[in-house]
Design a protein around this nucleic acid. Structure first.
Lengths: 218, 218
DNA sequence: ATTTTTTTGTGAAATTCTTGACAACCGCAT
DNA sequence: ATGCGGTTGTCAAGAATTTCACAAAAAAAT
């Protein structure tokens, strides 16, 4: 499988949603589904679903559709959800805590192995069963334990240095909740920026425009 | 101003980022900036910046560039960040609390006026200075206070009913952190879905592909 | 004043993404 | 066996988005 013929980012961004919907269908006991049925449920075109899935190989069967369990498994594999990975959290404030507690990491193959905060008064406390360490220990810990991914829940000002340190220690993936944009200085790093305030501002725009119709395309 | 000639969603999604970078420039005391300089900073093309801004009117001056403070103000206005709005939070779990405490709502024109949770043992507690109410009070509260927006930090199963209730009470904007997809049943609603797990799964994919280069376009 | 440099605004080309259309195929009923 | 309804995989058209390129305009330099 995995044809790897230049998969576009647009397709990748839809895969988790497919995975989610297929999980729901599985819960409901649905065994097979056609691209048309799925398209109605997900509010997109059947053509897009077929096109997307076809990037990775023929998971469907003509006249039948797609087997829900199998397709979900395939997408999970494409997303590498079966891989075992370790993750550290930088920043144990409100947001960091919530992410650590709210996300079911094991479900996506991750294990939370370290939590760091520059506020030394937090050192020793635990979040999600993991002891909070001082940021001073960050470099030593990473060189030793080699985490695969780092979650950044820190203010903008500290972020640049932390990223630099982590890159030096070989961390190449970042789930970035900070207001700092990790950019192309590190071309081999994988970055997902979660800019909550950007999302809120987008909503502010949409709120006003949503009534007036025909002003927004796509 | 505001030409309103079918602004595409892609452009809208970039506006908050412009706003953020212009805020930083302002903090640094930068007075004017050219599309080229801004493009280097933001890692996108100068052409795109000019094209984007031009959707809303000519904010720049040839041979000079853009005035940082003025441009930021204009984008803020386009995003309606000056409007006064009220928002309620549904779900006072880890994530709900973190959002309530972490986001500086007043900065974007919002006031948090209500918090609801179906867990009655939380009733009476306060988050961010707002008393937690039982979900039973939701309908009454909304009919009375008419909040403009609702933040959903609840599990998937409760979400559908809550959305239905809120729509009936005239709430038309949703900042949705739940796993439930609010979809086109409500064509006039403005929705921003923040699917954290989708983002995590995307990162899982990118982690694996980021080394192998030329497999991802865009 | 005049020229040079810089930079925007914008039409058009290039690229990317989505949708439409249909042949090939499968399962099922007859 | 054979035909029918349904569905995929895929190619090509269509739409949207991004980039290019340059005239017009402003500022700076001479």
């Amino acid at each position: 499988m995995q044809e790897n013929k230049n998969i576009s980012k647009s397709v990748i961004r839809r895969l988790p949603r497919y995975y989610r919907f297929l999980g729901e269908l599985l819960n409901e006991g649905v065994e097979k589904i056609s691209s048309r049925e799925l398209s109605e449920r997900m509010r997109l075109t059947a053509s897009q679903i077929r096109q997307d899935l076809n990037c990775f190989g023929g998971f469907g069967q003509q006249g039948y559709g797609y087997n829900v369990a199998e397709l979900r498994g395939q997408i999970g594999a494409i997303l590498h959800l079966d891989d075992k990975r370790t993750v550290i959290l930088i920043g144990a404030g409100n947001l960091g805590r919530a992410v650590a507690l709210h996300i079911d990491f094991t479900r996506y193959g991750y294990e939370l192995t370290g939590v760091f905060d520059r506020d030394e008064t937090l050192t020793g406390e635990s979040i999600a069963g993991v002891r909070i360490r001082s940021t001073d220990e960050l470099r030593g810990f990473c060189e030793d334990r080699r985490p695969n991914m780092a979650i950044l829940c820190i203010p903008r000002d500290g972020a640049e240095d932390v990223v630099k340190t982590l890159i030096e220690c070989g961390v190449t993936a970042f789930w970035n909740f900070s207001h700092y944009d990790i950019h192309a200085e590190y071309p081999n790093a994988a970055v997902e920026n979660v800019h909550l305030t950007d999302s809120l501002m987008t909503l502010s725009y949409l709120m006003e425009e949503s009534g007036e119709d025909d002003t927004i395309t796509n």
